[in-house]
Computed example of a mutant assay.
Amino acid sequence: DVVANGGLPKWVLISLNLPEDLEVSFVERFYVGVKRACEFYKCEVVGGNISKSEKIGISVFLIGETERFVGRKGAKPGDSVFVSGTLGDSRAGLELLLMKKEDYEPFELSLIQRHLRPTARIDYVKHIQKYANASMDISDGLVADASHLSERSGVKIEIFSEKLPLSSELKMFCEKYGKNPLEYALFGGEDYQLLFTHPKERWNPFLDMTEIGKVEEGEGVFVDGKKVDPIGWKHF
């Protein structure tokens, strides 16, 4: 969320709700991962809270800094719609995990890692700060999140399916299991790539960004000219 708004992570607050009989080693292992993440993103844990509970609960609050805040409101007719990276990999990785296979092929392990260890796109922060009119991360699925951006900006978003960036691993997965990769790219969630809009000429060839559509006057999300319902993860 911080990166999608054009910010860099700086300070972390962690609140833990822990059962009384939980082994200390669990907390130690948890903070090994926290330390690695903080070192990677160059941020630090500065506080938080701990309390007793029946079940494990972990809440993380992150504070970042930005020279220019970019939110979901601001997409303009005439903007192009861009995404970072590839789409649909995380959903495929989750489905592979749920299969509970004894052996996975290398491309399957790669998809599983993209589900278990998503990476915040800090390499895009300067670009988002400088050029984006609207921006958000893709956590609920491309269509669902595009609908959030459309609603907040009061515009229509047109997506062209042939332009969606698909990884070779996702294509192999879909070929092996008889799936449609476009369904994963459009409606799969938890990729944590970026969805943003700005004029087409601001495209940066040094980033793995793909132009997937355009912003027009109107409302709603359209794929190849047809309006689609915002199917995806719903928080409530």
Rank of each mutant, 00 (worst) to 15 (best):
V2E: 02
V2W: 00
N5V: 10
L8W: 13
P9C: 04
W11I: 04
V12W: 14
V12L: 15
I14C: 09
N17Q: 11
L18K: 05
P19S: 11
E20H: 12
D21A: 09
L22F: 07
L22R: 08
L22G: 01
E23F: 04
E23R: 13
S25V: 11
F26C: 08
R29F: 01
R29S: 11
F30M: 15
V32P: 01
V32Y: 12
G33V: 05
V34R: 08
V34D: 01
R36P: 00
C38P: 09
K42L: 12
V45K: 14
V45S: 08
G47K: 15
G48V: 07
S51L: 14
K55Q: 11
K55L: 11
I56F: 13
I56W: 09
G57N: 11
I58T: 06
G64K: 07
E65Q: 12
T66R: 02
V70A: 03
P77E: 10
G78P: 04
S80Q: 05
F82K: 00
F82S: 00
S84C: 03
S84P: 06
G85T: 10
T86W: 03
L87E: 01
D89G: 07
A92N: 03
G93L: 09
L94P: 04
E95L: 15
E95D: 14
L96Q: 02
K100P: 01
E102D: 11
E102R: 12
E102I: 06
E102N: 08
Y104T: 02
Y104A: 03
L109S: 02
S110P: 00
L111G: 06
I112G: 07
Q113D: 14
Q113V: 09
R117V: 14
R117K: 14
R117A: 12
P118D: 01
T119E: 13
A120D: 07
Y124G: 00
H127L: 13
I128W: 01
I128K: 01
I128E: 04
K130Y: 08
A132Q: 06
A132G: 08
A134Y: 07
S139N: 11
A144T: 02
D145K: 08
S147C: 04
S147V: 00
S150E: 07
R152T: 14
V155R: 10
S161F: 07
E162M: 03
K163C: 03
K163Q: 05
L164Y: 01
L164V: 01
L166E: 09
L166S: 10
S167G: 13
S167L: 11
S168K: 15
K171R: 15
K171S: 12
M172V: 09
C174A: 09
Y177C: 04
G178Q: 10
L182C: 01
L182N: 09
E183G: 04
L186M: 08
L186Q: 02
E190I: 01
E190L: 10
Y192C: 01
L194M: 12
L194T: 02
F196K: 00
T197N: 06
H198F: 05
E201N: 13
R202M: 10
W203P: 00
F206I: 02
E211A: 03
E211M: 08
I212D: 02
I212P: 03
E216A: 14
E217D: 12
G218C: 06
E219H: 09
G220K: 03
V221Y: 04
F222V: 07
F222C: 05
G225I: 03
K226V: 13
G232L: 09
W233N: 01
